[in-house]
Design a protein around this nucleic acid. Sequence first.
DNA 1: ATTTTCAAT
Length: 190
Amino acid sequence: MNPQIRNPMKAMDPGTFYFQFKNLWEANNRNETWLCFTVEVIKQHSTVSWETGVFRNQVDLETHCHAERCFLSWFCEDILSPNTDYQVTWYTSWSPCLDCAGEVAKFLARHNNVMLTIYTARLYYSQYPNYQQGLRSLSEKGVSVKIMDYEDFKYCWEKFVYDDGEPFKPWKGLKTSFRFLKRRLREILQ
DNA sequence: ATTTTCAAT
């Protein structure tokens, strides 16, 4: 096995962000997952370095790599060192699938020096019990799983979008959808 | 409110 390590992108186009991260119930045709990340290296309670970037799932002929695995392979290859503590934060358009949740849980179990927080715009296949179980297993491994709120979308816009100085324009229904998804996630995790 | 959704019927 020789997984291709790809470097993250620096940012994405505004149209991609607005389409892929829209948290509405009617958000059809989001056949991709985008993952924005920050990696903080923590040394004695102070941050000493800071990496950011954007991954999306890869759909080459021979590789079918979900965004989370793209991140993990890059992180393990280019960043991770054993005696350093990391705070990793993801902002994903879809929440992790069952397999990725398992991979991530396994990864974290082997690397106690990595803390992970996941903010997700939408919940992926959340009506299926095994996908719900995936999210629970992450939560039980200490991952903080949250739904993206207005402030998180705005943060992503400012940090991960080629915004040309334009302010973030929230879509109609953002807050309502957030509240719905938040309640749904709470039901899943409890 | 409970979608076809890291594509391909």
